[in-house]
Amino acid sequence: MDCETAEEQGGLGLPPGALGGPGWCGSPALGGRREPKKYAVTDDYQLSKQVLGLGVNGKVLECFHRRTGQKCALKLLYDSPKARQEVDHHWQASGGPHIVCILDVYENMHHGKRCLLIIMECMEGGELFSRIQERGDQAFTEREAAGIMRDIGTAIQFLHSQNIAHRDVKPENLLYTSKEKDAVLKLTDFGFAKETTQNALQTPCYTPYYVAKQLIRLLLKTDPTERLTITQFMNHPWINQSMVVPQTPLHTARVLQEDKDHWDDVKEEMTSALATMRVDYDQVKIKDLKTSNNRLLNKRRKKQAGSSSASQGCNNQ
C-alpha cells in the first residue's frame, strides 16, 4: 500500500496527490491520531532482516506488504511513554509536505515485550548528503541548494503549524524517496519531537553548509528574539524565489567526497550540537544542595568550613 492508496482508503474523498504538490504524502492521518492495530503485523507485512537505518529509539527494517508487494520500512519501538509520544507526533505530522509518510502502526509483542511497529514509506534514495557525494564531477549548484533548504523549511513550517518541534533536523534524518532525479526530500525520525503551544518556534534547524551568507547570520543569532522565525526564513528571497537563484557551481560535492572518511565524525558532532540545544524543562531535576556531591560545591564547603574554624578560634581568644 503506497501513500496515495492510503489517501484514497482513508475516506478523504480526494484523488491521489490532491492534498498538495510534490512532497505531500497524502496520509489519512493528517492532523490527527489513530489507535495502533492490535493484530500481528506479519498478517499484513512480510518482514526482512535487512536493516535500513537506526533511529533515535529503534532500528528500521525492510518489509513488504503481502497483498501489493510494496516495499516499506518498519521501525520497531519497545512500548513506553516516549515511544508513544514519537508515534503520536509522527502520525500527526504524516501527510504533511516533505514528511516521511506513516502507512500503519501495530501494537504487538516482541521477545516477550510489548512494542510498537511503525510502517513507513521506504525512502530508497538515501540520505541527503550521500546523494550530494554521489554527484561526483557533476556540479552541485546554488539553485539546487536553495531548493533543498526550501523543502526542509516547508517541512519545518508545517510541523510548527501543528505545534510540533522536530528538534533533530540533521543529515541522517533527511531522506530521498528514490534515486531518480525528481525524487522528493523528506524529514523523518520523531524520536526527539516535542509538542509546544508556543506561537514562535525559533530554534535554528538548518544546515548552514548551503545558505546564503546574509541568511546564515540571521539564523545563527544567539538571542532568540533576534533570530529568524520559520515564517521569516520561508519569506527570504533566497528561499521563496529559489528558482531564480543563479546556477553558481558549489564545491560542496567535492568537499563531501574528499572528507568522506571524516563524515561520520562530522555527523556525530552535529548530533552532539543538537543535543545541547534540547532542554526538556519538565524532565530537569533540581538536586538537593545538602546531598549533592558536586566537585565545585565540595571545594566551597571545605573553604567555608576552614573560615568557620578560624573564626571560632578568634572568638575563643
Rank of each mutant, 00 (worst) to 15 (best):
T231E: 15
V51H: 01
Q202Y: 03
K287R: 14
N163P: 01
E172F: 05
R167T: 13
F190G: 09
S292A: 15
G26V: 12
M234C: 14
K287W: 03
L54V: 15
I102L: 14
I216P: 00
C205I: 02
R33L: 11
M234T: 13
H160D: 12
R33Y: 07
Q257K: 06
L218T: 07
S48A: 04
L14S: 10
D282F: 00
G306S: 15
S27A: 15
E144Y: 00
N316H: 08
Q162M: 12
P22H: 12
E180A: 15
N57L: 12
D79W: 06
G32D: 06
K181P: 03
S242V: 10
E62L: 14
P246M: 05
T229V: 06
M277R: 05
P16F: 05
P224E: 10
T248L: 04
P36G: 09
K302W: 04
V56W: 00
D259G: 05
D182P: 00
L61N: 11
L14F: 06
R34T: 15
H166E: 12
Q257Y: 03
M243I: 08
M234L: 15
G69A: 06
A139D: 09
D168G: 10
G95D: 08
T207E: 13
E35D: 11
G26T: 15
D280G: 02
Q247K: 10
L47S: 03
Q9E: 15
N293S: 14
M243P: 00
C25M: 11
D264C: 04
G147C: 06
F129H: 07
D189W: 02
L219G: 07
V255L: 01
A146I: 09
D261E: 12
K113R: 12
L14N: 11
S94N: 09
D104M: 03
L296W: 05
Q214P: 01
P97E: 11
G96F: 06
T203P: 00
P237Q: 11
E121T: 15
S309H: 09
L220C: 09
A212S: 14
G11K: 07
S27F: 06
G69N: 03
K299C: 09
R300H: 09
E269P: 00
A275F: 02
T196W: 01
C115S: 07
G69S: 03
M109H: 05
R67C: 05
T42D: 04
D182N: 14
Y281F: 08
H236K: 04
R33P: 01
L250G: 08
E86D: 08
N240E: 12
A165R: 08
D168Y: 01
V266E: 06
N293H: 09
S27G: 13
D88H: 09
A146F: 02
Q257H: 06
Q232I: 14
R217K: 10
D79M: 03
I132W: 00
G17Q: 08
K194V: 14
A40V: 11
K49A: 13
Y176L: 13
D223T: 10
P204Q: 08
L219I: 08
H98S: 11
E258M: 02
T225K: 10
E121Y: 01
R301E: 13
M149V: 14
R167L: 14
T154D: 10
K71S: 09
V284S: 02
H98W: 01
G313I: 06
K213D: 13
T188P: 00
S311I: 11
L274H: 04
T229N: 03
R34L: 13
V60P: 01
P15R: 07
E124T: 15
G11V: 14
Y209D: 13
